[in-house]
Structure formats: structure tokens, C-alpha cells
Design a protein around this nucleic acid. Structure first.
Lengths: 228, 228
DNA sequence: GACAAATTTAACATTTTATGAAATGAGTAA
DNA sequence: TTACTCATTTCATAAAATGTTAAATTTGTC
């Protein structure tokens, strides 16, 4: 994911703070949205589906803690990274913040360098885990080894480019199941990227070339499935 | 590694603080040692080889910053996790602390929940590589001697700079396994440090120059792996 | 057979990595 | 301190690999 595709939502009632945060993070290339109170923050979060939210603790209308709890319980935002902004004195808020489900906190006054470094660190963690994907999977004559990023087909080792690997990985995750084109796009390409409809076909063709024609069956008008 | 095998060293001149920290961390099952000033802290660190050290910044005799620097330059303690204890007001010490090689900091007054949560987070890194912490490791023709910070390649002794050593050490900890760039950053550079994206490549190149081109395989879009 | 959908190939675009060189930082000895 | 060296990081550019698109062709379904 490119930086400009990473969305960060800033929620603070002080325009000055929004300005500082916004300036520094925009300069890093992130895609910034802002809200000036908790309620607005929650609304924008639902709408923009940000990857990370920076929430001020002290705000009129709805404070950061409450907003955080709501966001954490909103479908689709359970795993959004949330960090609080707290003034130095407000020690209690750290505890409350973690209780509410925060991942980190940033103390005011804001030091641009520290800020950027924290944000980068938090976002990096996003990419680190492949949660849910088994490291080594065997289907028929094919062994898919995600740890070493290679596959073994009939005892022959081959290295696939990333997209092909992910595509194969998806299809083989449930042999005989038909994966709709839109599902494939979502899982392999991610809902961020938009590519033309024919791209999948080309990748399927490459897999057919490398793994064997017969394993990939086309279901016209629907999608593809992997067969043993 | 089990919790009771994890050693934590607490260094603070105030008995009350030692008490609080000690109580809370013991309750979590960690193995606790204490020291009441910097000099004593350094000595105990050498002797006990703790996994993590919590250092108060303000102490008589030798302050935390100084102690941290010494510990960082002590053989065998280069990678010990160090976090500072700072009073709220002392903002400057955070900066100085990171400069001295700290991994994190904890602010007073201490909130048990925050404390425990941070400690767990810091120690998470440790647990992952309980296999790779051996002092002398042999992979193929390469012998990695962590104790003396040198390696022997085909019988030829080489002294590698720190980052290169750590990178090699990480990659060889599991030959053939692909380490994603994000993971490499986390494990070699640490959570708080942020470097540009091309830094890893440069270090890989140095290793290729010194150890041999063929040992380091690039997996485009993913990361690198070490092959024998 | 008509028509939409899928395949195929090759050209094209983009992304990612490699590399050389230069800037910055840290440590050390004079 | 100052000068010097080595480590580390950044930058610019080149090169490679991967990914996408377009267009002609084929396939399958009604």
C-alpha cells in the first residue's frame, strides 16, 4: 500500500493542533482527514474508514475515550489503529485510554519527529502480520510454502511473483470452491486498488502455464475455481 | 521462554518506586532484580544479564542516561531492552534517553496497567526469537559468534558492523525463511527508530559483498531470505 | 449462429530493487 | 577540541521484475 493510500483521521477541537498534525503528516505523504469533536470523529471514521485515528482526549460534546469506545465497537473499524493525544498532566487518561482500546498515545506538546516516528511504527505493524494464513499448505501435488514464499508442484520447486502467489494461495485455500471475480479482486488486490477486469485473467493464465491447465477451471460469468 | 525465566532489572534511588514496580512486575510472574543507583545498576546488569532494564533518569552518583550508555556499550548487553522512568516535567530526558539508546520510556507517576502493558509489549520481541539467542550459531559455512560480535565465513574471520551483524543474524536465524521488510525493520532497527525504505537494501548489499552474492535472495515485494 | 465472456499475446506502465556516491553521525586517538 | 575513520543513512539513477492494459481471437451459452 502506498503512503498516499493510507488514510489518517485527526480528531481535535483545537484548530492549532489539527493544523500541526495535519501539516506534518501531509508532508510525509499520508492522506489526512480531520474532525473537530468526538461525534464528528466517529461519523468521519465510519465514512472514511481510516487506517489510523489520532484522537484528542479532552474535547467538548464527546470526549476521546467515548469516541474510542464507539469506534472500537463499530463494524469494520475494530482493527483500526487508535492513538490518543494527551496533555502531559492528564496521566489518568492513559489508563482510561488503554482500557477503551487505544493502541498508543502521544503527549502534547507535539514533537514532529516523535510524532512521525510513532505513526510510522504503528502503521508498520499493520503490514507485519499475515494473521490467519497458515505457513505451509498442501493441496494435492502442490505444496504452498508461505514462509519461504515458494511452491512445490509435483516435486518441482518454483518461485511465483507476489500476485500469482497470492492468487494461487487464495484459490487453493478451498479447492473446488468458486471464487467470484470480485472476491478475488478484494482478497488479492485489496479493496483500495482498482484494476481493470481483465487483469485477473492474465494472472490465471500465468498460473495455468506454471502449474498446469487443468487445475484452474473457469466458471463463466462467475469466477474461477481450483480443482485437484 | 517462560515468564519466570525473564529477568527484569529495576534501577531507581527511591525505595517507594522500586517497591511499586517490583510488586506489580512480580505479580505478573517476572523475575525481578533491583539496584538503587546507576553504578550499581550497571554492575547488576553485567552480572544478571537481564532481558529488560527499567532505569530512572534522575539518580545520584550516576544518572540513567549515563548508565544506559554504558550498558549499551557492554558486550552481551547491546540488545538488552532499556526503558527509562521519567517524571512528567522532564521532557528533555525523553530525547536524551532515545539518544542514549533507550527503547521506550515510562512516565511517573506509575500506573500499574500502563506499566504492565508496556513491559509486555517490549518483551514480545524477545519471545519470538528464543531460538536465535544462542551465542554461537553455525549455518552452512558460516559461524556467527554473537559473544565476540564476529563471524567466520569459510574459515575467514570477519568483523561486521553492528547493523550488518544483526541483519545477518536475523536472516540466518531461519535459513530459507523470507523476512518481510517490515519485520526486518522491527527486529533490526527497533520499534522506535525510523529509517528510509532503501536502508535495508544497502545493508543487504554490504552483506552480499562480504559473505557472498548467492546467500541473499530477494523476494520482490516481500523481503529477503538467506539461503545456504 | 449471435453474443457476451474469457483467453491469449505482446506492448506498455508501474513498482521495486540495485548501485554508486555523497551526506551525516558516532566514536576514537592525537 | 580537532581531525580522522568507519558506520549508517540518504539520494539519485539505473536496471530488473512484476503488473496492467489493449486488441485480436477463441470459447461457451442461449
Amino acid at each position: 500500500m502506498k503512503k498516499k493510500d493510507i488514510r489518517i483521521l485527526l480528531v481535535d477541537d483545537e484548530p492549532d493542533i489539527l493544523e500541526i498534525l495535519s501539516y506534518n503528516l501531509s508532508a510525509e505523504g499520508y492522506n489526512i482527514f480531520t474532525a473537530s469533536n468526538g461525534a464528528d470523529g466517529v461519523a468521519k471514521a465510519k465514512k472514511k474508514q481510516p487506517h489510523l485515528i489520532i484522537l484528542d482526549v479532552m474535547m467538548p460534546e464527546m470526549d476521546g475515550i467515548e469516541a474510542c469506545e464507539i469506534i472500537r465497537n463499530t463494524k469494520g473499524l475494530e482493527n483500526t489503529i487508535i492513538t490518543f493525544l494527551t496533555a502531559r498532566g492528564e496521566d489518568y487518561s492513559q489508563v482510561a485510554g488503554f482500557d477503551a482500546g487505544a493502541d498508543d498515545y502521544i503527549t502534547k506538546p507535539i514533537k514532529p519527529k516523535v510524532l512521525v516516528s510513532k505513526i510510522k511504527g504503528l502503521l508498520r505493524r499493520l503490514k507485519e502480520d499475515d494473521a490467519g494464513t497458515e505457513d505451509i499448505v498442501k493441496v494435492g501435488n502442490i505444496i504452498i510454502n508461505r514462509e519461504e514464499y515458494k511452491i512445490i508442484n509435483d516435486g518441482v520447486e518454483l518461485v511465483l511473483p507476489r500476485k500469482e502467489f497470492e492468487l494461487l494461495s487464495l484459490l487453493t485455500s478451498k479447492p473446488n470452491k468458486v471464487f467470484k471475480r470480485e472476491v478475488i479482486l478484494d482478497r488479492v488486490w485489496g479493496n483500495e486498488v482498482v484494476v481493470g477486469g481483465r487483469t485477473i485473467d492474465v494472472h490465471i493464465r500465468k498460473l495455468r502455464e506454471k502449474i498446469g491447465e487443468d487445475h484452474f477451471k473457469t466458471i463463466k460469468g462467475v469466477g474461477y475455481k481450483f480443482v485437484l
